[in-house]
Design a protein around this nucleic acid. Structure first.
Length: 381
DNA sequence: GTCATTTGACCTAA
DNA sequence: TTAGGTCAAATGAC
């Protein structure tokens, strides 16, 4: 299902590029003809023809680029992380996300089942680094409470639904969905919806690291159990295995339209005790033209992984699962400290507020406080 | 006892 | 009719 959608996407992309190329050829021929003819040939009709061809070419390439941007999997640095949206949205145009997904939200007539109308939605894909703590990328600094889990058609893993813990107390309507990638179990697609209005939003943005949540257990403990159900009893693995995983964490975030909004993010590292996480996501400005965005700076060699955190938090997947993915330890080393985040999505994707619990950026004061939630230019509601 | 998670049921959009 | 999203009772952990 999803595969077919992706295939269609590629077909469309090829078609658009092909058309653009053909139009360009026509234009070239036309220009050759006009330049070799006398001045009288430069009539208005000829100019119109040129303009028409140029517009069509531009339009064609624009579509193609939009597809590329939208479908992160086609990006150079996105590797296999391209599982973007749900199958439903995959079938749409690159711009369908806003209209499609956001309009799905609605207000239930009796009000008991609220679906935020026009709530912004953006997603990012996170590749977890086994040695750095699973929750790192999954925990974004806010306190989430799981309210549901659903098996998604065509997806191997169930999707988890989370809402802000402060929903009842502070009326915070932020929610997020966590979907594990079929292709690569180390990749999670986290879709955020709505804006945090709770106090923890501010705390997260200014981030003092881990402060924490009053919760009795790490916020993502449950998440881990969901994503790696078998791991709960395997968290105490032999140190030798863990040592192999204790590599750093770095992130590559790519987003089509955010080049202009690229933020300089400090190196990432996980804090074993933190409850405040800063996710290296980006604000996706609707107006900023995009191109692959590579957070090379995040790959900074200065990154220093907290040695202890990995062993404390990373739930080592069972051999039958992780072996296939990482080839046991060796493959993990290949992944070595890569946290790949891709922000895809909505018109207002942004730098995630996450001040999170399990990993943080270089320093709390380095964390970009201007998370979209507080950005007046971004429309969340 | 409190709070979070699990899970089946329900509702809505496509 | 189907699938995604949410609710809420049941269950478990602390």
């Amino acid at each position: 299902m999803e595969k077919s959608g992706d295939w269609e996407q590629k077909i469309n992309l090829v078609n658009e590029l092909t058309e653009g190329m053909e139009l360009a050829k026509q234009l070239q021929m036309h220009l050759n003809v006009t330049t070799t003819t006398t001045a009288t040939s430069s009539s208005s009709s000829s100019n119109e023809m040129h303009e028409s061809l140029v517009l069509r070419i531009l339009n064609s390439y624009d579509k193609a680029l939009s597809m590329l941007k939208w479908n992160g999997s086609l990006g150079d640095n996105q590797q296999t992380i391209g599982r973007s949206e749900s199958p439903r949205s995959l079938s749409g145009s690159p711009h369908s996300e806003d209209s499609d997904l956001e309009h799905k939200d609605h207000e239930h007539k009796n009000g008991s089942r609220k679906r935020k109308s026009a709530v912004s939605r953006w997603s990012k894909q996170v590749q977890i680094c086994p040695g750095t703590g699973l929750e790192g990328p999954l925990d974004d600094g806010f306190s989430w409470r799981k309210y549901g889990q659903k098996d998604i058609l065509g997806a191997k893993y169930p999707r988890g639904y989370y809402r802000c813990t402060h929903r009842n107390v502070q009326g915070c309507l932020a929610t997020k969905q966590v979907q594990r990638s079929d292709d690569d179990p180390t990749i999670f697609e986290i879709t955020y919806r709505g804006r945090h209005t709770c106090t923890s939003a501010a705390a997260a943005s200014h981030s003092a690291p881990p402060s924490s949540s009053p919760k009795k257990q790490p916020p993502n403990t449950a998440l881990n159990s969901q994503l790696f159900p078998q791991h709960q009893q395997q968290q105490q693995h032999p140190p030798e295995n863990l040592l192999d995983f204790q590599t750093g964490l770095s992130a590559i975030a790519s987003s089509g339209r955010d080049a202009g909004n690229q933020l300089s993010l400090p190196p990432l590292y996980f804090s074993p005790t933190s409850h405040v996480e800063a996710e290296g996501s980006y604000i996706r400005s609707p107006s900023v033209p995009d191109n692959n965005l590579i957070m090379g700076n995040i790959l900074s060699p200065s990154f220093v992984p907290p040695a202890a955190s990995a062993s404390n938090y990373f739930p080592v997947p069972p051999p039958n699962e992780m072996t296939g993915v990482f080839g046991r330890n060796q493959a993990f080393q290949g992944l070595e400290s890569e946290l790949t985040e891709i922000v895809s999505g909505g018109k207002s994707a942004t730098h995630s507020p996450t001040a999170g619990l399990d990993f943080q950026f270089g320093g709390s004061d380095q964390f970009e406080p201007s998370f979209p939630f507080d950005d007046p230019d971004l429309e969340f509601f």
